[in-house]
């Protein structure tokens, strides 16, 4: 079986995969990065959202071998260097942007994807951006608030967290 390498959260990683191995399974089962959640496995819910070469993608809808050589960022890469919560993560905590927490890794990665493209989004732009991320607990209001707060926090700093 082929061996692949990729950079995950800034560190070189490798593992043996099959052609059909999904990026989500590679991250969770081979690398032990279980922060990336598999909700639906049909590319609808967005719980498995990661960044692939800077683009927000659903890792259950990408083959690991297609991501060989790429730079991948997962929820584990969103904390600050000292292990404290990154700005987006902290905003989700402060604004109660989660209840059960299952969708949260995907929500945080989607929020990071949005803020990279659009550092000061409107509420409507935030809601539109979350179209592919489903939360069954919160009704989205506090998630939107958290992302607005994170945008304000990151906008006030010269360098974004990611």
């Amino acid at each position: 079986m082929p061996e692949i390498e990729m950079t995950v959260n800034g560190k070189p990683m490798s593992g043996t995969v099959e052609g059909r191995t999904l990026l989500s399974d590679f991250l969770r089962d081979m690398l032990g990065l279980t922060g990336t959640h598999i909700g639906c496995d049909t590319a609808q819910c967005g719980a498995c959202t990661v960044h692939l070469d800077g683009r927000q993608v659903k890792s259950c809808n990408v083959f690991a071998m297609d991501a060989a050589g790429a730079e991948v960022t997962t929820i584990e890469g969103m904390a600050n260097a000292d292990g404290s919560l990154g700005a987006i993560q902290a905003a989700f905590q402060t604004h109660h942007g989660l209840q059960c927490g299952f969708c949260t890794p995907g929500m945080v990665m989607a929020a990071a994807g949005l803020l990279k493209e659009n550092p000061a989004p409107t509420e409507a732009e935030i809601r539109a951006h979350l179209e592919g991320n489903i939360c069954r607990c919160t009704g989205y209001h506090n998630i939107v608030k958290a992302i607005q707060a994170a945008a304000a926090e990151l906008g006030a700093k010269p360098i974004a967290a990611e």
């Binding site: 683009r55 951006h129 179209e131 592919g132």
Partner: peptide, 9 residues
């Protein structure tokens, strides 16, 4: 089309 993650790929 779809959502941002779908459009990225």
């Amino acid at each position: 089309i779809g959502d941002p993650s779908v459009r990225a790929l």
